[in-house]
């Protein structure tokens, strides 16, 4: 039997790697991918807690899985808008490197 803490460790690992990627990738699409990793880590934690019976009430028995579904939906919306923004910036600035986008820098 796997203890819940091991599952949470996997989730934490995914989150930390995603955070590192979001902070250090130069490519804007790479940053989007790292954010997907972070969202997956959160969804995994939700599902893990749910599988170990954390919302114990009968009415909320599927709360964790519902939250994970919502996370997947919001991730889809985020990816769509993020990619549209990247394409718009690429069209104007001819770059998709986040550290070359300094139009607002004083």
């Amino acid at each position: 039997m796997i203890p819940l803490s091991h599952l949470l460790t996997v989730s934490i690992g995914l989150f930390a790697i995603g955070l590192f990627g979001a902070l250090s990738r130069r490519n804007a699409i790479g940053i989007l991918m790292a954010i997907e990793l972070i969202l997956n880590a959160a969804a995994l934690a939700f599902v893990a807690f749910n599988a170990y019976g954390i919302p114990a009430a009968d009415r909320d028995a599927a709360l964790g899985q519902t939250a994970a579904l919502f996370i997947i939906g919001i991730a889809a919306a985020g990816a769509i808008v993020g990619l549209a923004l990247v394409l718009a910036v690429y069209r104007h600035q001819r770059t998709i490197f986040a550290d070359d986008m300094h139009l607002l820098k004083g």
């Binding site: 930390a16 955070l19 590192f20 902070l23 250090s24 990738r25 130069r26 790479g30 550290d99």
Partner: peptide
């Protein structure tokens, strides 16, 4: 380069 110049700091934060 794939990573920006703050990669070490980012690794520390993560």
């Amino acid at each position: 380069p794939a990573l920006n110049r703050h990669a070490l700091l980012a690794a520390l934060v993560a």
